[in-house]
Simulated assay, not measured.
Amino acid sequence: MGPEIRVQALFRDRYLGVVRKGHPLDLKQDVTIEQYAAYGHVVAPYGRQTIDSLDAAIALSGLERTTVAVVPSFPAALAVARASDLVALLPASFVNTQPAAAVSVYAFELPVATEGFTVSQMWHPRLENDPVHRWLRQLVLRMCRQQVSLGL
Results as ranks from 00 to 15, higher is better:
21 K>L: 06
21 K>Q: 13
21 K>C: 12
21 K>R: 15
21 K>P: 07
22 G>A: 10
22 G>I: 13
23 H>S: 02
23 H>V: 05
24 P>G: 05
24 P>N: 10
26 D>F: 04
27 L>S: 13
27 L>G: 09
28 K>C: 02
28 K>F: 02
28 K>N: 03
28 K>H: 07
28 K>A: 03
28 K>S: 04
29 Q>F: 08
29 Q>G: 12
29 Q>H: 05
29 Q>R: 12
29 Q>N: 09
30 D>N: 11
30 D>R: 12
30 D>W: 04
30 D>T: 11
30 D>H: 10
31 V>Q: 02
31 V>R: 03
31 V>H: 01
31 V>N: 03
32 T>R: 00
32 T>P: 00
33 I>S: 01
33 I>T: 13
34 E>Y: 08
34 E>R: 07
35 Q>A: 15
35 Q>S: 14
35 Q>R: 04
35 Q>D: 15
36 Y>K: 01
36 Y>S: 09
36 Y>R: 01
37 A>P: 07
38 A>W: 05
39 Y>H: 13
39 Y>N: 01
39 Y>R: 03
40 G>M: 10
41 H>S: 03
41 H>F: 11
42 V>K: 09
43 V>P: 02
43 V>A: 07
43 V>K: 04
44 A>F: 09
44 A>G: 10
44 A>Q: 11
44 A>R: 07
45 P>R: 14
45 P>C: 08
45 P>V: 11
45 P>S: 10
46 Y>V: 08
46 Y>H: 07
47 G>K: 02
47 G>S: 07
48 R>W: 12
48 R>M: 12
48 R>Q: 12
48 R>S: 11
48 R>I: 10
48 R>D: 12
49 Q>R: 15
49 Q>T: 14
50 T>Y: 00
50 T>V: 14
51 I>L: 15
52 D>S: 08
52 D>L: 06
53 S>W: 03
54 L>Q: 08
54 L>G: 02
55 D>T: 02
55 D>V: 04
57 A>N: 09
57 A>M: 08
57 A>R: 13
58 I>M: 07
58 I>P: 11
59 A>R: 15
59 A>M: 07
60 L>M: 14
60 L>K: 15
60 L>A: 15
60 L>C: 06
60 L>I: 04
60 L>D: 14
61 S>V: 04
61 S>H: 15
62 G>I: 10
62 G>E: 05
62 G>S: 12
62 G>Y: 09
63 L>V: 07
63 L>T: 09
63 L>D: 06
63 L>W: 02
64 E>V: 07
64 E>Y: 06
64 E>F: 04
64 E>I: 02
65 R>G: 00
65 R>F: 05
66 T>H: 13
67 T>A: 08
67 T>L: 11
67 T>M: 11
69 A>F: 02
69 A>S: 01
69 A>H: 01
69 A>D: 01
70 V>L: 12
70 V>S: 06
72 P>E: 13
72 P>T: 12
73 S>E: 06
74 F>Q: 06
75 P>Y: 00
75 P>G: 02
75 P>V: 02
76 A>P: 05
76 A>Y: 09
76 A>D: 15
77 A>I: 04
77 A>M: 08
78 L>G: 07
78 L>I: 02
80 V>N: 04
81 A>M: 05
81 A>R: 01
81 A>K: 01
82 R>Y: 01
82 R>I: 00
82 R>V: 05
82 R>N: 05
82 R>C: 05
82 R>L: 05
83 A>M: 13
83 A>F: 08
85 D>N: 15
85 D>E: 13
85 D>H: 07
